[in-house]
Simulated assay, not measured.
Amino acid sequence: MDQETVSYILTYHWHLLSEQEKLILQHLLTTEKLMAVTAASVRQRMQILSARKGWLITDKQLLERLADGPDAFRYNTAVTVFNAHGREKLLNLCPRCGLLARTPQARQCRHCGNDWH
């Protein structure tokens, strides 16, 4: 499974993830945003706010699932969802070239230009 498909599944099929997977992905997103902030005082305030909102996790069992790194977690989660929920039915593939459309609702291929409205 390529990075584009992983991103597509995690973005458009969020509802199929377990609550633990959602928490971990929210933690990853928040951590990435915090790392992008250069001002230490701003980062500290954002970290406090994120912790209050529950966007950062402290549960050791959940954090252990990130032992192989965030990319491996994302990949494994997407593969699990893909295998558990109907495989290709999750993906909006172009009928002409078979590549992934931009969104589940898209009816025009960004790769070959095919229009299947």
Rank of each mutant, 00 (worst) to 15 (best):
D2C: 13
T5R: 13
T5L: 10
V6F: 04
V6P: 04
S7A: 15
Y8V: 09
L10K: 12
L10T: 07
T11H: 14
Y12L: 12
Y12D: 11
Y12M: 14
W14S: 15
W14H: 14
L16H: 15
L16S: 14
L17A: 14
L17G: 10
L17V: 05
S18N: 15
S18W: 15
E19A: 14
Q20N: 11
Q20S: 11
E21T: 00
L23Y: 03
L23C: 04
L25A: 00
L25T: 00
Q26Y: 06
Q26E: 03
Q26G: 02
H27L: 01
L29Q: 10
L29R: 11
L29D: 06
T30V: 00
T31M: 13
E32C: 10
E32T: 06
L34D: 02
L34K: 03
M35L: 13
M35V: 07
M35F: 10
M35P: 03
V37D: 04
T38D: 12
T38W: 00
A39V: 12
A40C: 02
Q44A: 09
R45F: 01
R45G: 03
R45E: 07
Q47K: 04
I48T: 10
I48C: 01
I48N: 10
L49T: 06
L49D: 09
S50Q: 01
A51Q: 03
A51G: 02
R52P: 05
K53D: 06
K53I: 02
G54V: 02
L56T: 01
D59L: 09
D59R: 07
Q61V: 13
L62M: 10
L62F: 05
L63N: 00
L63C: 01
L63F: 03
E64I: 15
E64W: 08
R65A: 07
R65Y: 01
L66Y: 01
A67M: 09
A67D: 11
D68W: 03
D68C: 08
G69M: 08
P70H: 12
F73Y: 09
F73G: 03
Y75R: 07
Y75P: 01
Y75G: 06
T77G: 09
T77D: 06
T77S: 13
V79K: 02
V81I: 11
V81C: 02
A84D: 09
A84M: 11
A84N: 13
A84E: 10
A84Y: 10
A84L: 11
H85V: 04
G86H: 12
G86E: 12
R87W: 02
R87V: 03
E88M: 06
E88K: 08
E88V: 07
L90P: 07
L91S: 03
N92D: 05
L93A: 08
P95H: 03
P95E: 02
P95F: 04
R96C: 10
R96P: 02
C97R: 09
C97Q: 10
C97F: 09
C97V: 14
C97G: 11
L99S: 14
L99N: 13
A101R: 11
A101T: 11
R102M: 15
R102W: 15
T103W: 12
T103M: 14
T103Q: 12
P104E: 05
P104Y: 06
A106I: 08
A106W: 11
R107T: 13
R107H: 14
R110F: 15
H111N: 13
C112F: 07
C112G: 08
N114P: 03
N114L: 09
N114S: 09
D115N: 15
W116G: 01
W116M: 07
W116H: 02
H117T: 12
H117P: 08
